[in-house]
């Protein structure tokens, strides 16, 4: 945890309705800077909906999502749509079902993600077309950065292969590398460990810890794999049926009766007892 706890992401009374269905109901939580915050809950709890609101995919029905940059600038993410969330607020995300540019090479996937830096350097294409020095410098910086993340994710030998030809675990790592190439302040990962075996999940843990430690990037992740969640998270938020049912450190969450009930279910004759415990 960072020395001075200050929030990077404040989700305040967020609600998302689709017609009559309330997918997310009045959820509030805070993610601290340089923390790994996990969003967990049973299937259909509304985790991905929260993600989609944060990353500009959905316009929330109600609530505020405030992102505070390290330099003090603040953005209300629900007011930014589309590419502006990535470009202006610098929030990057990955997807549960990966969305790599399968027909482009691994390296190109990472260079596309540096569009904005290259765009400024190329003076909106003109310098790029005429091959000016400033643009060539920027392009080689972009390649250096891409190589750095390829090295970190162990994909360097695959740099010139089409992204679609990578193995499943490699594609997951490439998606994270690509998100990092956008130079984010907040990295949102939707089930990064889904479909990974035990060894790959351990590598993922190491990668995420490295990103947080060396680059000071705050991470928000959705995950079902408890070995990942419990090992790397600083803070866990639990959703069930669109409502936040718990919020705290991994130890606190592990022992929370509400969470246990949500995950494991309870016997009929225990209902009253559990309800009494959780104060319903």
């Amino acid at each position: 945890m960072s020395a001075a706890a200050e929030p990077i992401l404040t989700v305040d009374r967020l609600s998302m309705r689709f017609g009559g269905l309330i997918a997310v109901d009045d959820v509030s939580f805070v993610a601290q800077r340089s923390d790994i915050t996990a969003l967990i809950g049973p299937n259909g709890a509304g985790k991905t909906t929260v993600f989609n609101c944060i990353t500009g995919f959905y316009k929330p029905s109600a609530g505020l999502i405030r992102l505070q940059h390290p330099d003090g600038r603040a953005y209300l993410l629900e007011r930014l749509l589309n590419f502006r969330v990535a470009k202006v607020a610098r929030v990057a995300r990955t997807f549960q079902n990966m969305r790599l540019f399968a027909g482009m090479t691994v390296l190109e996937n990472l260079v596309v993600a540096q569009h904005n830096a290259l765009m400024r350097a190329s003076a909106f294409s003109f310098a790029g077309l005429f091959g000016l020095k400033s643009y060539r410098t920027a392009e080689s910086a972009a390649l250096d950065k891409a190589h750095y993340w390829l090295d970190r994710t162990g994909l360097l030998p695959r740099a010139d292969d089409p992204a679609g030809s990578l193995a499943y675990g490699e594609q997951r790592r490439l998606e994270i590398a690509r998100a990092m190439c956008t130079d984010p302040v907040l990295l949102c990962l939707d089930e990064p460990a889904a479909g990974l075996n035990a060894r790959e999940s351990a590598e993922l843990n190491a990668l995420l810890k490295f990103i947080r430690r060396e680059h000071g990037i705050s991470i928000l992740l959705i995950e079902h794999d408890m070995s990942v969640v419990m090992e790397i998270s600083d803070h866990i938020v639990v959703l069930d049926y669109g409502v936040k049912i718990a919020d705290g450190t991994p130890e606190a969450i592990r022992n929370d009766p509400k969470v246990i009930a949500a995950y494991l279910g309870i016997e009929d004759d225990e209902v009253e007892k559990v309800e009494a415990e959780v104060g319903l």
Partner: peptide, 13 residues
């Protein structure tokens, strides 16, 4: 390949 993803990576579509 993926208009939405390109925009999420900051490409001005």
């Amino acid at each position: 390949q993926d208009l939405k993803m390109a925009s999420l990576l900051g490409v001005n579509i």
